[in-house]
Computed example of a mutant assay.
Amino acid sequence: MDLERFKELHAYFSQKDLPREALESAEYNAYSDAMHENEDCYNWATTEKLKKKGFDYQNYCCLMMADNVDSSLDDNGEIRYGAVDVIINKWDEGLFGIPIHDGGTSMVLINYCPWCGEKLKK
Rank of each mutant, 00 (worst) to 15 (best):
E4R: 15
E8G: 14
L9K: 11
H10K: 11
A11Y: 05
S14H: 03
Q15P: 00
Q15H: 00
Q15F: 00
K16W: 09
K16M: 12
D17S: 14
L18V: 03
L18G: 08
P19N: 08
P19T: 04
P19H: 01
E21Y: 08
A22G: 04
L23Q: 09
L23Y: 02
L23H: 01
E24W: 05
Y31S: 02
A34N: 06
E37D: 10
E39P: 07
E39C: 05
E39W: 07
D40T: 04
N43Y: 05
A45Y: 03
T46A: 12
T46K: 06
T47F: 05
K49D: 11
L50H: 12
K51T: 08
K51P: 00
K52C: 02
K52R: 14
K53L: 11
K53R: 14
G54Q: 11
G54Y: 12
F55W: 03
N59S: 11
Y60I: 13
C61A: 07
L63P: 03
M64S: 10
M64P: 00
M65C: 12
A66P: 09
A66K: 09
D67R: 07
D67K: 09
N68D: 10
V69M: 02
V69I: 15
V69A: 01
D70T: 13
D70L: 09
D70Y: 15
S71W: 04
S71L: 06
S72M: 05
L73M: 11
L73N: 10
D74W: 04
N76I: 03
I79P: 13
R80H: 01
Y81C: 08
G82K: 05
A83P: 02
V84A: 15
D85L: 00
D85N: 10
D85T: 06
I88C: 09
N89C: 15
W91K: 14
D92N: 13
E93H: 13
G94Q: 05
G94F: 03
L95R: 15
P99F: 00
P99G: 04
P99M: 01
H101I: 07
D102K: 00
D102H: 01
D102S: 05
G103C: 08
G104T: 12
T105A: 10
T105I: 09
S106V: 00
M107Y: 09
M107K: 05
V108N: 11
V108G: 01
V108H: 08
I110S: 02
N111I: 10
Y112M: 08
Y112I: 10
C113V: 09
P114G: 00
W115T: 12
W115M: 10
C116N: 07
C116L: 08
C116K: 04
K119N: 04
K119V: 13
K119Q: 13
K121N: 15
